[in-house]
Amino acid sequence: MLNIGLVLPDVLGTYGDDGNALVLRQRARMRGLKAEIHPIRLGEPVPETLDIYTLGGGEDTAQILAADHLISDGGLTRAANAGRPVFAICAGLQVLGESFRASGRIIDGVGLLDATTAGMQDRAIGEVASEPTRAGITSNLTEPLTGFENHLGATILGPSAQPLGTLTRGNGNADQAATADLSDGSAQRTYEGAVQGSVIATYMHGPALARNPQLADLLLAQAMGVALADLEPIEIPAVDRLRVERFNASEPPRSQR
């Protein structure tokens, strides 16, 4: 039985990112595995023995509530420290960092990612695509990543975190204003998402795992304790067509903007 934790869908479920848990469950079931989703709502303890955890997006107040709960509860931190995979989207990425800005103040994050989030000058909204860096537990990713970003957070990665992808389209983690005074500012502006330990985080909505089946299978493999190559392939032509459509979307590449 594969047990999938859907963490705080009542406050981190604004943008349909609950769909990532559904994708994981369906891809497991298509391989003949039993899989169930366990919603964990605000005020409920986070079990530390589930196989995988997903977090989605949310607004400022929701982020603050989520951070307070996850820090005080500690279950997600214990699960991540034990090597159980955690997949976080947008606000989920920010909440798992060291700190983030919400409602005009700096809020302490869960601390699973060496990342801090301030504000962007302009909202990042539109298609985003990247080439996987193959950092850490994503070392076996080979297919380009695609999603839809919609955020005002400028996330700067510290030395213990690595980007999930190197941008080919879109804004990614941070803008010019947030990185202008950084010694590695030009590199930070090419980053999308973050990888640290068993945590994979990204600004890609979509849901991300519907648009990136190899990433979904990597997370499943991590949760099951097997190699990505050991998973039986799944052919879904509609997903292939979706990826081609999104990579050919009308927004011009970064190099032409």
Rank of each mutant, 00 (worst) to 15 (best):
A177T: 11
A118P: 12
G158Q: 06
A79T: 06
E232I: 12
D240T: 12
I107A: 02
L152H: 05
L167H: 02
G56Q: 02
G119S: 09
S139H: 14
H38L: 13
G165A: 11
G57F: 00
D60E: 14
E245P: 06
G197C: 14
G126W: 02
S139A: 15
A91L: 04
S139Y: 13
P233A: 11
Q222D: 09
S99T: 14
L112C: 09
G58W: 08
S186K: 08
P233T: 11
E149F: 12
P159Y: 08
Q196A: 10
G126Q: 04
N173M: 04
G172W: 00
D175N: 06
V110E: 02
A180N: 11
R105V: 09
C90S: 12
S99D: 14
G104T: 06
P233F: 09
G147R: 01
V128E: 01
L70A: 07
D175P: 07
D18T: 11
A82L: 11
L24K: 01
T190P: 05
G104W: 07
A201T: 09
G97C: 03
P47D: 14
L209S: 01
A62K: 03
S183E: 09
G83K: 12
T168E: 04
F100A: 08
G19W: 00
Y203T: 10
S198I: 04
L231I: 13
G16Y: 05
G153E: 06
Q214R: 15
A67W: 02
L96N: 04
A135M: 10
H151A: 04
D217N: 15
A67Y: 02
Q222E: 15
V195L: 14
L218M: 10
